[in-house]
């Protein structure tokens, strides 16, 4: 290899690396995600999951309960870091309480798993007819007997203890017992493999729709219009998200015939 060729090869390697890093940075700034919208009937009992025997499930109806507190636990590293600055920490906790109070006031339910004095995991469910999920940007249009599951969160210290599966099981079991909700929906990011497996294989959720969202700085998201596949489903705009939509998982399968 001549000196010129070696130089060119080094330059192209550097260029490729720069492109890769630049691409990754750009994807963190702005990216389009494919989101799987999944649904399940509440008539079928959820499986009993194995988890840390210390876990106890609470159904939360007011802020006096455990939700909103979660004192001194590690959340996201960046939030944990910011929360150490006292005024910011107070503000964050106050904001969390405010947000939870708003959710409870709307009639949303929360289920919280505790292990001793620690909050291990929580999950929320909404029965509003129209729900906008700020995290994914998705708009769900629900029938009176449908509900939307959101904000399934387990604290890092309690991951791999089955806490997430435990709160999901508790929620599904409670909705089945109440009998007011016959179908629940949720969403899973395509690259969240553990959640994909848990939700679909263990809890039997089926794909009902696929939607794309535009995400900025990994925090702000908007559902992209006309990306719903099939067009009829819980994340379609009201005329299409009407009672006309079939409710069987098989009909909704992304691989089956398209609905028009």
């Amino acid at each position: 290899m001549t000196r010129g060729e070696a130089e060119r090869s080094r330059c192209s390697t550097l260029l490729a690396k720069a492109r890769k890093v630049g691409g990754a940075m750009l994807r963190r700034l702005v990216c389009i995600h494919t989101i799987d919208v999944v649904g399940r009937s509440t008539a079928t009992a959820p499986p009993t999951v194995r988890c840390d025997p210390q876990l106890v499930l609470h159904q939360v109806t007011s802020l006096d309960s455990v939700v909103g507190a979660a004192p001194g636990q590690r959340d996201w590293p960046i939030i944990d870091l910011v929360a150490r600055i006292r005024p910011l920490g107070r503000r964050l906790r106050a904001r969390r309480r405010e947000r939870n109070a708003e959710r409870l006031a709307k009639g949303d339910l929360a289920y919280v798993a505790t292990a001793g004095a620690d909050v291990a995991a929580w999950i929320w469910v909404s029965r509003e007819p129209s729900v906008h999920c700020r995290w994914s940007g998705l708009h769900f249009s629900l029938e009176p007997d449908e509900a939307y599951i959101y904000d399934l969160w387990s604290f890092p210290a309690h991951r791999a203890t089955g806490a997430g599966a435990f709160v999901m099981q508790g929620l599904l079991e409670d909705l089945r017992r109440r009998g007011e909700v016959s179908r629940v929906y949720g969403y899973i990011l395509r690259d969240n493999r553990p959640n994909q497996v848990l939700t679909r294989v263990v809890f039997g959720f089926e794909q009902v729709q696929r939607v794309k969202d535009l995400r900025v700085l990994s925090r702000l998201a908007w559902q992209l219009p006309f990306t719903e596949d099939p067009r009829v489903g819980p994340c379609s705009r009201p005329p299409l998200a009407s009672r006309r939509r079939p409710r069987g998982g098989a009909v909704y399968s992304a691989d089956s015939a398209r609905l028009s």
Binding site: V49, R50, C51, A165, V197, L198
Partner: peptide, 16 residues
Amino acid sequence: IFEHRVIDSLHVVEFV
């Protein structure tokens, strides 16, 4: 295998 509790949610990701 789930109903007979042969495998649980903690192992299913690894199994797949």
